[in-house]
């Protein structure tokens, strides 16, 4: 289908180019001097008009006419000199036509093959809204966001944040969590989720704004596991591996045996200890240090 359309388009365009080359009877165009003289005749007419209106004196008009006459003579003289130029042969025309007919489609096809994505159909938003569940969810989230603008509720924003999080729109999710925390009583979990979303929005870097969210989380509940994990990660990102492992071991110590994060945590401890070249068991577990306000 694609290739059919492209081929059709190419055929139409190329044949339009070839038509003048292959046409048998070549109409003889008027000579160049004829074109020039049309302009000069019009200039002569203008001079006549200007004399009529009294803008030009007779002497001025005479001088102007003489000049225009000379231009006409010069144009005609050049024409006579140029008349001897060679006329092309029909053979050359056909060669040119063949070259065009081969190179244009070939070149276009190859360049398209390099640049195009023939497998990708158009995806107008209206269509996707009917078929793509993620787009539907996003649109719903957008409606929810609009509603919340006029009637802000903490729980609503939390829900919105979760939807955006699911859609991997971390920037929006973080904004929604922020609104939720601002409006609500700010549970430790909500604060740490805000922090985590900020981290993800920043491509995994534990940035200061995330740190302040985690600090808030631990202010509310010093045992909040997610915040403690990220405190460790922040230390690791600041190249303080021992400190990171210490925080994580502290978290590991406090975690229930079936805590869902435990396997990941253990992996992390092992990996970072290996990178730092020390035995994790030698590190004393330490809780995160909260900056004093």
């Amino acid at each position: 289908m694609y290739w059919l359309v492209f081929a059709l388009l190419t055929i139409i365009c190329v044949s339009a180019l070839l038509y003048p080359l292959l046409r048998r009877s070549q109409s003889t165009a008027a000579s160049r001097a004829d074109y020039d003289n049309v302009v000069y005749r019009s200039q002569l007419t203008e001079v006549a008009h200007e004399v009529e209106r009294g803008v030009l004196t007779q002497a001025q008009a005479h001088a102007a006419r003489t000049e225009i006459h000379r231009r006409m003579l010069a144009a005609t003289a050049v024409e006579r000199k140029a008349a001897a130029s060679p006329k092309g042969s029909r053979h050359a025309r056909i060669t040119a036509a063949v070259v065009i007919a081969v190179l244009v489609p070939l070149g276009s096809g190859l360049l398209y093959a390099a640049l195009g994505s023939p497998d990708l159909p158009d995806q107008p938003y209206a269509e996707r809204l009917k078929h793509d569940p993620n787009v539907m969810i996003a649109a719903a989230a957008h409606r929810l966001a609009t509603d919340l603008e006029s009637k802000p509720v903490a729980a609503g924003y939390q829900r919105l944040a979760e939807i955006y999080f699911y859609l991997r729109e971390y920037d929006r999710s973080a904004l929604a969590y922020q609104r939720a925390v601002d409006l609500g009583d700010g549970s430790a979990e909500m604060w740490s989720q805000l922090g985590e979303t900020i981290v993800l929005a920043n491509g995994g870097a534990v940035v200061p704004s995330a740190m302040s969210a985690f600090t808030h989380a631990l202010d509310v509940d010093v045992r909040e596991p997610r915040a403690r994990y990220y405190f460790g990660l922040a230390a690791a990102q600041a190249h303080k591996l021992r400190r990171a492992v210490a925080i994580w071991r502290d978290l590991e110590k406090d975690s229930a045996a079936d805590a869902p994060w435990l396997p990941v945590l253990k992996q992390h401890i092992a990996a970072y200890a290996k990178r730092g070249g020390f035995d994790p068991a030698t590190i004393t577990p330490e809780p995160p240090v909260l900056p004093k306000p």
Binding site: A63, T66, E67, H69, R70, L73
Partner: peptide, 8 residues
């Protein structure tokens, strides 16, 4: 300009 010659 100079006037046209007869030829011109």
């Amino acid at each position: 300009p100079a006037p046209l010659s007869d030829e011109e």
